Computed example of a mutant assay.
Amino acid sequence: MTAINEDQKTFWNGQGGETWVSGQEEMDRFLAPFSDELMVHAAPQAGEHVLDIGCGTGETSLRAAEAVGADGAVHGVDISVPMLELAKARAAAAGLSQARFSVGDAQSDALGEPVDLVISRFGVMFFENPVTAFGNIRAHVRPGGRMVFACWQPVRENEWVHVGLGIAKKHVEFPPPPDPYAPGPFAFADIERTLGLLTEAGWRNAKASPFAAKLNQGETARDGAEGLMLRGPISRALAEASEAQKAAVLHDLTEALEAKIIDGAVRLDAAIWIVSADA
């Protein structure tokens, strides 16, 4: 196991997974426009079998389970045990016995029986070797099946990222920028490269549709700032910051978000790609 892969598993089974679990309702609200758009494009049908890569706490898996009905099946896979435990509890509470969840690495692990549809909401950008990973996923899709996933457009198109990043960098030292194609939230932002990776992995008819929305970051500027610091892209850098540094970031970020309140909530611009391909 490489250092990058080990780092991802450690993070999502520790701080990353725990903070997501504690803020599950907030995160699902924040990402709701993208979950909606993903499901429109994926359009799971009654009776279909669906694989959800990087399913997290289960939001998209549960939506798919409702769509496929009792005659269908949904298998959610993730590397985060705490997130999967919450996903299982949510499925049980909703009476969706057709949804099951398991720990797995889509890059290399066996992913169960062949499916009709693969979906992912921001769960595929962390692959160390995307071609190998997408090849493994394709091997678990029936002939004629399809894949639809959401990935982020570049940082410059995502205010929810650069507003906090710009402020945090004034108070906290950040490491040098990583390789833009390294595993991470924006690894697939270069959409032409991403479509090329899918083609190289054996997928057909790869294409992408842009989608933009204003995300609900909370009712108050303080709520929004705290959420970005706890679960946003600056959270890992702030984990090692002093209390004085965190207080300074919170103050400045809260002040900046005051100007972003629209109709009773902090609303920040965000943009993604909806990518689809055929097996």
Results as ranks from 00 to 15, higher is better:
R142N: 10
E157V: 03
P154L: 10
F134A: 02
G144S: 08
P143L: 00
M125W: 08
P154V: 10
R138V: 00
F126M: 08
N136K: 04
A150I: 10
P143E: 06
V141W: 07
V148M: 03
V155C: 07
C151A: 12
C151K: 01
S120E: 14
F127L: 11
F126E: 03
V155Q: 12
E159S: 04
G135Q: 04
G145I: 10
I119A: 12
F126N: 04
V124Y: 09
E157F: 10
V148C: 03
G145V: 12
M125D: 14
F134N: 00
P154W: 03
I119Q: 09
Q153P: 08
N129H: 06
F122N: 13
V131M: 03
A133D: 00
N136D: 00
T132Y: 06
A139Q: 11
G135M: 04
W152Q: 02
G135S: 12
R121L: 09
P143A: 03
N136G: 01
F122W: 14
E157R: 09
F134T: 04
A139M: 04
R121A: 12
M147H: 02
N129M: 01
E159W: 05
F122M: 15
V155L: 14
G123E: 14
E159Q: 15
V124Q: 12
E157A: 10
I137M: 07
V148L: 01
F149D: 14
N158D: 02
T132Q: 11
F122H: 15
P130N: 00
F134W: 06
M147F: 15
S120Q: 14
G145C: 13
M125L: 13
H140T: 08
R138C: 02
F127N: 03
R138D: 01
A150D: 06
G135Y: 00
R156L: 11
T132D: 06
R138A: 04
H140C: 02
N129K: 07
N136Q: 04
W152H: 05
E159P: 12
G123K: 04
P143I: 08
N129V: 01
G123T: 12
P154F: 05
T132C: 05
F149L: 11
E159H: 09
R156V: 13
P143T: 11
R138P: 01
G123Q: 09
I119Y: 03
P154C: 11
E159F: 14
G135I: 01
F127E: 01
S120L: 03
E159R: 14
N129W: 06
M147G: 15
R146F: 12
A133R: 06
V124M: 15
A150R: 10
V131W: 03
R142M: 13
G144E: 04
R156N: 13
G144N: 04
W152T: 09
W152C: 14
N136I: 01
C151W: 00
R121Q: 12
F122T: 11
W152M: 05
F127G: 07
F126L: 02
A139D: 10
G135E: 02
N136F: 00
G144Y: 05
N129Y: 05
V124N: 09
M147L: 09
H140K: 11
F127S: 08
E157P: 09
F149K: 02
G145H: 10
H140D: 06
E128W: 02
M125E: 09
V148S: 04
R146Q: 09
A150F: 07
A150L: 13
V141G: 06
